[in-house]
Nucleic acid binder design. Structure first.
Lengths: 338, 338
DNA sequence: GCGAATATCGAAATCGGTTTCGATTTATCC
DNA sequence: GGATAAATCGAAACCGATTTCGATATTCGC
């Protein structure tokens, strides 16, 4: 079923059918109704490929998970942002296309994949340092939105949570509860997110006048649980333990807690832990995890609207930073127990 | 950059370039190398829209989350299956397109969305009773694979875990540990998955010669945590409690555990609980959750290969059922403690 | 009722590829 | 060297839409 068949059935020209589908004004109400009826009956849906070819607009948004830190669709934080983004993009009339990261026949970098599919825009999810392939895309004329990734191109923008404020809220909470010896567990130095949280953490520690002990800082290879476990092991083996630990992700925090438990330490009585992200598991762990919630839904919606505006030339890009919220559960205690 | 420009730069015709890109044999090695070099330099990538239009193959796979039970991309079980599917489909040369469920301009049902985008095939993720829109797609000539959804069309197939065996393994485990009074928490009756697990559970209870008490069975509105909490509340209020409970999903189990804890009951000392799915959170909860693991990766890979064969007419559809595995943690105890 | 303005419609070019088939060139053989 | 076969290449139709612009039909004013 194509536009030609519809035209024949309705006894009109192809162009008339096209005009009706695209709300042109120069077609009478009478023929319009007749054609619409036939379209309804046949369930005709115009070919997106043909439409894209003719208009150079595909109504498709490319989704890219960049980086090497195993950040995939399964990531509990990003998948929530993405889901919110997807919904909002849906009401704006776009569908999503997922590029598989596997070495693909067409060989290409992200940019050529985007032109290959004629995407109208794309969202890049990462939280890592910018890689060259992403930079090329950022610098292209394709509208891009970074999620936890600072895109600077002239058709780009980004959304992220305020990592400095996150760290500052954590330190403040620790401080008010009486903790003074503060440690940190982060991801690798390749992660901008982890780096920012660490930098903010250090800054906050200093501004509260607390002593900064590099021996209380450890790093894993990524944001996942085993990395947190391994990093905590190293801290435990080093001899000197902090009294409270901020982990750059909830999973890192959970890994750290597992290591602490295995060493017979109690949380929060011996060591207090605060995570980051507020993934769903936080509510079910033992102890339940005090953490920083990022408004994932809002991040997704903002990303969608920014991208829409970028596509329709209604904005010049920019960035949104959303405020974090402290979610108090058990892993940090409600007061100091010495 | 298009094929015409490449042709001009290389001093050959458009058709020659096309032939080179598609491995035709009637082009000399010399011109082939020359053209390939130019393609390399320019980073040219052929338009997927034009290609799709001409060949009627898009190299795109549609992804559909069907049903009303809030089964979305964020679902901890399905997202793992999907990720594995995505990877495998990637090495087979396909990318994924996500249809947004929101009411879309083009109005349509799933089938017309698929023809709209010329998808080569699609994967339908559900676990619910078949809805009419899915049935239309199933009966169409578009290759479809159901994940936890029994598709019967002549170009369809499905993968799912063996829900009867799941239930049977659970009952056996309960039995060997000495539990005799077995309860169940499921999702709504609209869910085939929940129904199958319940039916298998009942059958296994009977075949072990245990008494079946309908008062120990409860149902929520979906597979999520609050539903498990609510269902458990109803069980608690009913007066008579089972000694062990099988929940049709891990989240239902976690909700039930929360309700039990609030009533001062211990797990597994007072009530043993087994979940289903082995989502990541199981390892971090208190108590850690004994559950049934489904091989999500295998489900995804199988789905990908089945779909590939269906697309290339190398199979007539069918189904794969993967074996479940019991993962023993703390929520069911290691022996009966009366 | 007539000219002008407006409403309605269609022919054809275009988007960027694929593929058939015929033309031309080159190689092969006796 | 000439006939024949094989290798190489290109012209053109086609896929299914959009959009411009010109043609025709209708309405309007007077």
């Amino acid at each position: 079923m194509n536009i030609k068949k519809i035209a024949e059935m309705a006894g009109v020209s192809v162009s008339t059918v096209s005009k009706i589908m695209n709300n042109y004004s120069d077609v009478s109400e009478k023929t319009k109704q007749r054609v619409l009826e036939i379209i309804e009956q046949t369930g005709y849906s115009p070919s997106n490929s043909a439409k894209t070819l003719a208009t150079k607009k595909s109504n498709l948004i490319g989704v890219i998970f960049a980086g090497e830190l195993n950040v995939e669709i399964t990531h509990p934080f990003f998948v929530e942002v993405l889901n919110s983004f997807k919904k909002q993009m849906g009401v704006l009339g776009y569908d999503l296309i997922f590029f598989s990261n596997e070495k693909f026949i067409s060989g290409g970098d992200y940019l050529s994949r985007c032109v290959h599919f004629h995407v109208d825009g794309c969202v890049i999810i990462s939280g890592e340092k910018m890689e060259p392939a992403i930079h090329d895309l950022d610098m292209s004329s394709i509208p891009c939105i970074g999620v936890d990734l600072e895109l600077k191109g002239r058709k780009s923008g980004y959304v992220m949570s305020d990592n400095f404020q996150i760290a500052s809220k954590v330190v403040e909470h620790f401080y008010l509860l009486g903790y003074r010896e503060l440690g940190f567990i982060g991801s690798t130095g390749d992660s901008d997110i982890s780096n920012q949280r660490e930098a903010g953490y250090i800054k906050a520690i200093e501004s509260f006048g607390l002593t900064l002990n590099p021996n209380w800082f450890a790093h894993g290879d990524d944001f996942f649980e085993p990395s947190g476990y391994a990093a905590m092991q190293r801290l435990l083996e080093s001899g000197s333990l902090p009294r409270a630990i901020f982990a750059a992700s909830d999973l890192l925090a959970l890994g750290a807690i597992r290591a602490l438990k295995e060493h017979g330490l109690r949380i929060p009585e011996d060591v207090a832990v605060i995570g980051c992200d507020d993934i769903e598991a936080c509510k079910y762990t033992s102890p339940t995890l005090t953490t920083i919630r990022q408004n994932k839904e809002r991040l997704g919606v903002l990303a969608a609207h920014m991208l829409f505006d970028l596509i329709n030339n209604q904005s010049e890009g920019g960035s949104f930073v959303v405020e974090p919220a402290l979610i108090i559960r058990e892993s940090c205690g409600s007061g100091l127990n010495r």
